[in-house]
Write a protein that binds this DNA or RNA. Structure first.
Lengths: 213, 213
DNA sequence: CCGCTAATGGAACTAGAGACCCGTTATGAG
DNA sequence: CTCATAACGGGTCTCTAGTTCCATTAGCGG
């Protein structure tokens, strides 16, 4: 992105008050609308500028590319933290997590955004980084419930909590992106159950020794 | 794609011999090269035509869009069937499958192609269909090894074989597309072990009753 | 409240992806 | 072998995403 050197991608810190923040909010909102209504393929910065009632130049100056805009959208979303519920059992906690993911990936607005981000992340490094940061945060938020299951001796003590959380999400994203099967609550519950089964069998232990043999 | 009505996307069946086949092969090969070298973002049909030493018009006439080209590339690849090994145990078979997927998603040329296809599939319906056909074929090829495990009473009789196979792939694709963690053989083995653990626990049974409680 | 200047916005400009015209090549049926 | 025509290809045109220029607006330090 040679844009980064030519312009300031982010207004940085010099004068981020009032108007700048307003413009950013309007543009992100408009981008979200376009994504939800017409999808990633029609996401054109000039069009976003028009909808946001903002100068085309401004959008190109501050974001420059579709990938940057989409990455910023994700960063914005990452700030809204979702509270984690506690049910007292690993299966209960992971099911809650799986259903949360499933609801997210079923909501038309959100699914459009996530598909766009994931697509952009396959070819744009900056977007890929933003995506990983986002999921790092999410995974860290949920990892404690696996630790609690370890403390309750539900699962082996050297289980990697983050790996278990990721195991819950994986089949759901697989459905969304690859197989295209319906993402219903049953799928979510199955994902959670599978993660629990794996954890109990010692699949997600930190050392190389895999259980289940 | 109103192109479909204006041109013939596929030459169909009238005269597919010699030259037409040669052109198709050259274009697909060139597209693969561009993907591997410069990635999806730089995949320009005119450039592909130049590399393939083929008229730009021909490429636009027969494929029309980047998504179509990429979908055709995948369809071409789907025809090369990979032989399935049989090890005598479910874990052995699924590990072989997982390692095959892992090798595919590690090979630079193939990974570029798969990322491009998956990205295109998030916004192009035809590509999404091609993608699902591809994995339908692959899943069907491997499902029998799960059926054999059922016959050996390794896992519950009402296990859905296709769901087990998909469970093996899901974490690997998750790493590739989302978390960005390294896709090594250990990850593949873990994916296989997790699928076995889930299958044994009855997670992938056809009815609604999930095991593992 | 004033003024400096960061940030925005309109408008004209440019480049290149993709569409189209029409002449040329060579496949495959008879 | 011959010929009708399916399929290819060069050249040109169009349209629009992205860039640049410069005038205008409005944060924010004083």
């Amino acid at each position: 992105m040679e844009l980064e050197t030519r312009y300031e991608a982010e207004p940085g810190s010099v004068r981020p008050g009032g108007r700048t923040a307003r413009v950013r909010a309007a543009v992100l909102r408009a981008a979200e609308d376009v994504l939800a209504e017409q999808g990633f393929a029609h996401l054109d910065l000039a069009d976003v500028a028009r909808r946001a009632a903002v100068g085309k130049t401004t959008v190109y100056r501050r974001w420059g590319t579709v990938a940057n805009l989409v990455a910023d959208l994700l960063a914005d979303m990452a700030e809204q933290s979702v509270p984690r519920t506690e049910t007292g059992s690993l299966l209960g906690d992971l099911t809650a997590n799986a259903r949360l993911v499933q609801r997210t990936l079923t909501d038309p607005r959100q699914v459009a955004l996530f598909k766009a981000v994931i697509a952009a992340a396959t070819w744009d490094t900056r977007t890929a980084q933003a995506l990983r940061r986002f999921y790092d945060i999410r995974v860290n938020e949920w990892a404690p419930c696996v630790q609690q299951a370890i403390d309750r001796t539900e699962i082996p003590p050297d289980t990697d909590p983050r790996e278990v959380i990721r195991a819950v999400s994986a089949p759901l994203y697989y459905r969304l992106l690859i197989s295209g099967e319906v993402l219903d609550q049953a799928a979510a519950d199955r994902a959670a159950a599978a993660a629990v089964a794996g954890a109990r069998a010692g699949v997600y232990r930190r050392d190389g020794d895999r259980g289940s043999a």
